[in-house]
Nucleic acid binder design. Structure first.
Lengths: 127, 127
DNA sequence: TATAATAATAGTAATGATTACTATTATTGA
DNA sequence: TCAATAATAGTAATCATTACTATTATTATA
């Protein structure tokens, strides 16, 4: 039985109010302004809960800590190899990719994650 | 200046001889049969080197340690949420996805990684 | 072939991200 | 209001990965 918690609500709202794909630690720093003695463990526990219940997305980028995304409508991500920035992309439909692959794969495909890597506009011009 | 090392060669060949996307630790266990006192640090250092020189691929799966792939021809991956297995998929061309996205994105897209998640055939039937 | 320069290694310590543990606090159904 | 228990704060532990350093292996050149 799941019980309400202010901390969980605070974490979810924090994540829904931003589009910068923060790490657990960045969320911790930010939520601490509202709940000064929230613990990092609480942040991690709730991020896992919110991910498992489909309220947020977890993104592994192979550069440092996992990122979290409060925007759950299916979309793709661009990750800058230079500055590590994670940016939303809405160019390619994962639903289409899933139906295409499902017809060929013997298992059950439930979701997909499409990541592009390269250099963002800022890093290109600042070079 | 890069110098040859038997250990690096052993790691590369080990990875090229299998299709199970092992973790650094699994590669360490396996390569240790040939080089009994290779160190885990050497395995990690060379996996990073081989990844950066494009000789192997690194895959982050958001379930445990990173996986490595000696098969570098572009392809997609299916990851079973139940048993963690990573399987190759050659259904969708990343090159096509990159050209599609490149026309729309202001930065420079260099490569892409497409992962599907769900339940593999084994886990479906064993349930 | 011997040698000097230095890249790579083994072994170990350190770091960073995440999870586990436990006594206390908050939520909620009766 | 109260009892049951989910969730928390704070801390310790774990897991994956990187850093450090003295020693060894590779390689270009004499």
């Amino acid at each position: 039985m799941v019980k309400y918690s202010r901390q969980r609500e605070g974490i979810l709202r924090n994540l829904q109010s931003r589009r910068d794909h923060p790490t657990a630690d960045m969320i911790y720093d930010s939520v601490r302004k509202e709940y000064p003695n929230i613990s990092l463990g609480t942040v991690y526990r709730n991020l896992t809960f919110l991910t498992e219940t489909g309220q947020i997305l977890r993104i592994s980028t192979q550069m440092g800590a996992d990122r979290y995304d409060g925007f759950v409508k299916p979309h793709n991500h661009f990750i800058c190899k230079e500055c590590g920035m994670v940016e939303d992309m809405e160019y390619i439909s994962c639903d289409d990719l899933i139906s295409e692959a499902s017809g060929l794969y013997p298992g059950l495909i439930e979701n997909c994650e499409l990541q592009f890597f390269g250099k963002c506009k800022n890093c290109l011009s600042g070079q």
